[in-house]
Design a protein around this nucleic acid. Structure first.
Lengths: 351, 351
DNA sequence: ATCTTCATTGCATTCGTATGCAAATATGTA
DNA sequence: TACATATTTGCATACGAATGCAATGAAGAT
C-alpha cells in the first residue's frame, strides 16, 4: 500500500546532477549537443532517481505522440491477431506505440471515432470494414495519415495495402476448373467490402473465361455461424456444388465442418473447398485448406512504410500498395494434374 | 496532398465563442460550472471549427493518461485475442484506452518495459508469462496498479485474476478417473508459470487421492509445435497413455491432431484428452474438446474492476481474485456414467 | 596576447488544457 | 431597495519536456 503518484521530472534530475533542465532534456534527445561529462552526470543522476522521460509531455511540445491508432473491429478471425502482433512488433522497433481500438462489434462506433481523434495519434491503421469512411475523411482533414489494411477505397486521401484480390479470385477459378469440377459456388463475406467484391469479381471473371456462367452465391458475412448457415443451404440443394470458393479461411473452416459433420461429405472427394488468407488453422492437419495466401509480413511492412514516410514528410498522400500472393495447394480441394509447383516446401498453383 | 498538422485549440474556440479559454475547458469537463448559454455558444463554436479536446494536453495537467498498458507476449493462443477484445471494450466503456504491447516473442523485452513506463499508463494489465516480475516491481514503486491476468505471484504489490487452477486440475483428475482410465499423462505448459504449476499440482493431487501415483509428464511450452512433439513422445511409448490432461486447449489441439493424423488413434476410444480454457476451436465439430472453461467475461470484468478501483483511490494494493469455473464435457474424453449435469445447453462435470 | 570559431550551456518560452482564486453577475430574501 | 447567497466567469498559473537564442567557455590561429 503506497501512493507516490508523482514522478521524477527532468528538473529533479537536473538539480541532482547540478545542471540545467535543458541539459537533461538534451541528454535524452538523440543528436542534441551535450558534452560527454555532462551526459555522464545526467545519466548517473537519472539512474539514481529512476528517472524516465515523460512521453506525454514530450508529445505535447513536439506535436508527435509516437502512437499509431489501430482499429480492428473484431479479432475472431485468426488473421487479425497475427497482423496485430507483427504490426506492434514493427512499430515498436521504430519507437512507435499501438493504441488499440477493438471490440465494438455490436456497439456504436462513434465513441471510438472521437477517441481516435482526441489521442493525437500520428497515424491510423484501419483494419475494420465499418467506419472506414467516416474516420478517413476526418483524419485527412486533420492531416493524419491513414492506411487501410486488407481493404481499399477510392478516397483520394487514404492509402491502402491489399493483395491482388481480383487476380486471386481469377486464379482460384482457374485452379478449380483445372481440377475438373462441375457446379461452382461462392460463399461471400460482407457484401460491400472491397475485398469481398474484388475476390468475387475475379472468381466470376475467371469462371466465365472458361465458359462457366452459373455460380451459386451465398452470403457468409465473414462470420462462422453465417457461413455455416450458408453451407447448409448449399449442401441442401438438389444439385450440390462440388467446388466452393469461400471468401476467407475463417468461414471456410465453418463450411468444411458443416460438410463433414452435418452432411457426411468427404473433402475433397465430394466437394472441393478453397479459402483465402492462409491463417494458422488452414495448416492444421484436420483442415489442410487450399488457400490464397496473404503474405502477412509483407503487408504489414508495406503499411508501416507508408505510415512512416507520410509522418516523416508531414504530408498525407494516397498510396495503394498491392502485394503479390500465391495459391497454396493443400488437401481441401481436388488437385489438377498440371500447373502445380513446389516452392520452399509448399505446393503452389502456377496455372 | 495537404499538411495542416496544427489543430484547433480551446483558445481558438474561446475566441470564436467570445468567452475565455477556461469556459471552453469547463464545457468539456463533466461537472464543471458553466451557464447553459455559455455552453451553447462554446459547443457551437467547437462544432464550427471541428474542435476536439487534446487528450495529451489533458493528461499532462491531470496526471492521468486514461490509458491502460496491456502486455501480451503473443496472440497465437486464441484465448488471448478474445481477452483483448472484451478488455478493450470494457475499458472503452469507462473512457479508457488500450496501449498494447505485443509481438516480442523472441526479441528482448527490455524496450517494452521502458516504453510502458514512459507512456504514463494509469494501470497495467499483464497477460504475459515473461517479464512480469521486472515490471511489477518498477510499477509498484511508481504507484501504478497492476493486475496479472491468468497468472499470479506472491508479490505484495500486484493483483491477479485467475480461475482456481488447482481445483481445476483436481476436477479433471476426478473426471478422468471416473471415466475409468488406466495410464495418465500431463502435457505441461511453461514450467514456471503459476498457472501451469497449479493445474499440474491439482491434477497430481487428484490422481493421488484415487491411488494413482504414476503420471507421465511431458513439456509442451504452451506452443503447438512443442505440444505436438510432446504428443509424439507420448504416443510412441510402449504403454501408451489413455488419459491426457493438456494444460491448455491451444496445445490440446496439437495433441489431438498428432493422435489422429500421425498415430491413427480414435478420440476418445483410444485416448481421452482434456484441455483448459475452452477457446473457440474447442467447440468446433472436429475437436469438441472437454475443457475446463475459463469465464473470459468474468475474468476481464474482475480485472477492470481491480484496476479502476485502485486508480480512483490512488493507492496500489494487492487483490487476488479467483473466479469459479467448470469442466465442460464434450467428446474428446470418455464420459463417466455419473456426475454429469446439463446446464444451459452444455454438459458439465459435477463430480 | 588577441581574435575567431565552434561546441556547450542556461534562460525563457512554448505546447494545450485544467483549476484555485477572486471578481462579477444572477438569484433569492427581508 | 438593500443585502446575503449562489452561480458563473476570467485571470493566472501549472503540468514536464523541447528548443531558439544568446552567453559562456574552450580550442585554435595568428
Amino acid at each position: 500500500m503506497k501512493s507516490p503518484r508523482q514522478g521524477i521530472t527532468s528538473t529533479d534530475v537536473a538539480r541532482r546532477a547540478g545542471v540545467s533542465q535543458s541539459a537533461v532534456s538534451r541528454t535524452f534527445t538523440v543528436g542534441a549537443s551535450v558534452a560527454p561529462e555532462t551526459r555522464r552526470k545526467v545519466l548517473e543522476a537519472a539512474r539514481d532517481l529512476g528517472y524516465r522521460p515523460n512521453a506525454i509531455a514530450r508529445s505535447l511540445i513536439t506535436n508527435r505522440s509516437r502512437m499509431i491508432g489501430v482499429v480492428m473491429a473484431y479479432l475472431e478471425n485468426q488473421f487479425y491477431p497475427g497482423v496485430l502482433e507483427t504490426l506492434a512488433s514493427r512499430l515498436q522497433e521504430r519507437g512507435y506505440q499501438v493504441l488499440l481500438f477493438t471490440g465494438f462489434k455490436d456497439r456504436n462506433s462513434d465513441p471510438v471515432y472521437e477517441q481516435v481523434m482526441q489521442y493525437q495519434v500520428d497515424g491510423l491503421f484501419l483494419a475494420s470494414t465499418t467506419l472506414s469512411s467516416g474516420l478517413s475523411g476526418e483524419c485527412a482533414a486533420a492531416g493524419i495519415p491513414i492506411v487501410l489494411f486488407n481493404r481499399t477505397t477510392e478516397s483520394a486521401q487514404t492509402s491502402s495495402v491489399t493483395t491482388n484480390n481480383r487476380e486471386g479470385g481469377r486464379k482460384i477459378a482457374d485452379f478449380l476448373v483445372a481440377g475438373g469440377h462441375e457446379r461452382y459456388a461462392f460463399v461471400a463475406g460482407v457484401a460491400d467490402s472491397s475485398t469481398n467484391r474484388d475476390r468475387e469479381t475475379g472468381f466470376c471473371e475467371g469462371l466465365e473465361k472458361h465458359g462457366i456462367n452459373e455460380i451459386i452465391r451465398v452470403a457468409g458475412q465473414y462470420s462462422m455461424p453465417a457461413a455455416a448457415d450458408a453451407a447448409r443451404r448449399l449442401f441442401s440443394r438438389s444439385e450440390r456444388p462440388d467446388a466452393i470458393f469461400v471468401a476467407n479461411d475463417h468461414m471456410a473452416i465453418a463450411v468444411m465442418d458443416v460438410a463433414r459433420y452435418e452432411f457426411g461429405l468427404n473433402i475433397p472427394e465430394d466437394v472441393s473447398i478453397v479459402g483465402y488468407d492462409d491463417v494458422g488453422p488452414a495448416r492444421w492437419p484436420g483442415y489442410q485448406i487450399t488457400s490464397y495466401s496473404q503474405p502477412l509480413d509483407a503487408m504489414v511492412d508495406a503499411s508501416v512504410t507508408i505510415l512512416m514516410d507520410q509522418i516523416d514528410q508531414n504530408k498525407v498522400s494516397s498510396i495503394h500498395t498491392v502485394i503479390d500472393a500465391e495459391l497454396i495447394v493443400r488437401e481441401s480441394a481436388r488437385k489438377p494434374d498440371h500447373g502445380l509447383q513446389s516452392r520452399n516446401g509448399q505446393l503452389v498453383w502456377t496455372g
